[in-house]
Simulated assay, not measured.
Amino acid sequence: MTNSAAPARPKGGKRERLGAAAARVFHEQGVEKTTIADIANAADVPVGNVYYYFKTKDQLVRAAIGAHEQALSDLIAMLERLPTPRDRLTALIGGWVAERETAARFGCPSGTLATELDKRADGLDRELAAVMRQLVDWVEGQFEAMGRTDARQLAVALIAAYQGISLLTNTFRDPELMVAEGERLARWIDSLAA
Rank of each mutant, 00 (worst) to 15 (best):
A186E: 12
L79V: 09
S166H: 07
A180C: 05
P46H: 15
F106R: 02
D118V: 03
T169P: 04
K11V: 13
E28M: 14
L154N: 06
A114H: 12
Y51L: 04
H68Y: 15
V179H: 07
R15E: 13
G13D: 11
T169M: 04
L60W: 04
T84G: 08
L185M: 15
L18R: 02
G182W: 07
D190N: 15
F143V: 12
T171G: 04
L124R: 15
L158S: 11
P7E: 07
A104D: 05
L113P: 10
T112E: 12
T84N: 02
L92D: 04
Q163Y: 06
L192Q: 11
M1T: 01
E176F: 09
D190P: 04
T56G: 06
F106A: 00
A194H: 01
E176I: 03
V31C: 08
G48K: 04
G13I: 15
P175K: 05
D118H: 11
K14V: 14
A114V: 09
D87L: 06
L72R: 12
D38N: 15
L168F: 14
R86M: 06
A71T: 08
R120V: 14
L89C: 09
R15A: 14
A77V: 13
T149D: 13
L82G: 03
G12M: 04
G30N: 09
G95S: 05
A43N: 05
I36R: 08
V25P: 02
L185C: 05
T112D: 04
A22Q: 01
A21V: 08
P109Y: 13
R126N: 03
F143S: 02
P10A: 13
D174Y: 12
S4M: 06
M146E: 08
D137N: 14
L177F: 07
E183V: 11
G111P: 14
V179Y: 01
P7V: 08
R17V: 09
Y53Q: 07
A157E: 13
T35V: 13
E116R: 10
T2A: 12
V131A: 03
F26G: 06
R88F: 01
A23V: 10
C108A: 12
K55G: 05
C108S: 15
V139Y: 10
I93D: 01
L177W: 08
I93E: 00
K119R: 15
A5V: 11
E183P: 04
D125N: 14
V61F: 10
A21R: 01
A104C: 07
A130Y: 00
V131G: 01
A40I: 15
G141N: 09
R17A: 15
A91W: 01
Q142F: 07
S191F: 03
T2D: 14
L75D: 11
F143L: 08
E16Y: 08
P109H: 11
D150A: 06
A37H: 11
